[in-house]
């Protein structure tokens, strides 16, 4: 039924990761309501959801920039993206 969507395992895992992130945020919101707002190092007022958005968007750009300048493999940008995600959730 879904052959027209041309699913592959890597893309399915990618979406599974996104869905897991959203589900985790939902659970966190139910457990600790309010979105955990704060003002971080960039002076931005962010909630948990904002921080996830910034982490994912920043990671996408890290991968694209590395791919454009150096090409695969992408282990180095993966490490940078993880560090970026940690930085955003900890300090932004």
């Amino acid at each position: 039924m879904l052959t027209w969507m041309a699913w592959t395992w890597p893309t399915a895992l990618f979406f599974l990761f996104i869905i897991t992130c959203l589900a985790t945020l939902t659970v966190l919101e139910l457990r600790y309501p309010g979105g955990d707002p704060r003002r971080g190092v960039f002076g931005l007022d962010t909630t948990r959801g904002d921080r996830l958005f910034i982490s994912l968007l920043g990671s996408a750009y890290i991968f694209l920039a590395y791919l454009g300048f150096f090409g695969p493999p992408l282990w180095i940008p993966l490490a940078i993206a993880l560090a970026w995600g940690f930085f955003v959730f900890r300090y932004v």
Binding site: W4, M5, A6, T8, P10, T11
Partner: peptide, 17 residues
């Protein structure tokens, strides 16, 4: 989602990727 799936594949039509 379909666009993401297409972006990592090559197709010559007939639903073959």
């Amino acid at each position: 989602m379909t666009v993401v799936n297409y972006s990592v594949q090559e197709t010559f039509g007939d639903n073959v990727f």
